[in-house]
Amino acid sequence: MTLDDLWFLATEAEQRAEQAYHGLTDAHTQFLEFSRTYDVSRRRFRTLARRVSESGAPYGAHTAVYRPSGELLLVWHEGVDMWVLPGGGVRDGESFRETAERELGEEAGIEAEYEGLGIATRTAIQCGEYSTWGVLPVFEAKAETTALMVNDPDGEITDAKWFAELPENTRDREQLCAWRDDRF
């Protein structure tokens, strides 16, 4: 892929991100919005821009699952060495919510009552002079079952736990705390 092709891919991704973002935000109310930026290598930029051009999301869809007590479910992601929300990549023909539900089942083995969009993050991706963005949707859901069982086919998720206080090594900890404070 030449550099001009990379510019074209970034532009295509940005158009798909706009569609996905507006589709989500127009369909939901009372969610938190955040922005973040990642500087990545050219190879990673290409991978993420392709994902965004296909679905609008560089990192798929996720779920903030809570117990009525306010405890939040996190899963351990070996690849990033952090606690994260259950979630992952969008498959062909899947909606963001369908992705979030499937990933929750695989990564934690529980059922939850989905209540809508909790967080929409505009995720900017940069590599030198190239940039694009995508949306990271986080749905909120109340746990219907709480016994955890990890069955991740990718092998990236190795543990799942309920947390009253989020560990320091939680990805997007500040945003999750803001969501929880707003929610409870």
Rank of each mutant, 00 (worst) to 15 (best):
E115D: 12
G128I: 05
P167N: 02
E168I: 01
T146I: 08
E94I: 07
W7H: 13
E33S: 13
G134F: 05
A10W: 03
L166Q: 03
E103V: 02
D92C: 04
H77A: 15
V75W: 04
R102C: 09
G87H: 09
S131K: 10
G79A: 10
G79W: 11
Y38W: 11
L117G: 00
A164D: 13
T37Q: 13
R43M: 09
E107Q: 15
H22C: 01
E165Q: 13
V65A: 09
W83H: 08
W83K: 01
L85E: 11
E94D: 15
V90D: 03
E54F: 13
L104A: 10
Y66E: 01
A13T: 01
G155L: 09
L9D: 05
F139T: 02
F45R: 05
G60F: 08
N169F: 00
T29E: 14
G105Y: 05
T11K: 15
A64L: 15
E129D: 14
G134A: 08
K142L: 10
P86E: 10
A143Y: 08
V135T: 07
E33K: 05
V90A: 06
M1S: 14
E101I: 11
A147N: 12
H62S: 09
T158Q: 10
L117V: 04
T146V: 10
F96M: 14
D4V: 11
H28A: 15
E103R: 12
T170L: 03
I119D: 00
D92W: 10
A13P: 01
R36T: 11
G87F: 09
S41F: 08
N169K: 06
E168N: 04
F8C: 07
E111Q: 12
W83R: 04
Y21G: 00
D5W: 07
M82D: 03
A49N: 11
S53M: 11
H22S: 03
A178M: 05
D152W: 09
L85F: 08
A27D: 13
R102I: 01
G128Q: 15
N151K: 10
G70M: 04
R122T: 12
W162I: 00
A100V: 03
T47R: 12
I119F: 02
G105M: 11
R171I: 04
E71H: 10
R180D: 01
M1Q: 07
L32D: 02
V135C: 04
T47W: 06
V84T: 09
E103Q: 10
H62F: 10
G155M: 07
G155R: 07
T63H: 07
H62T: 06
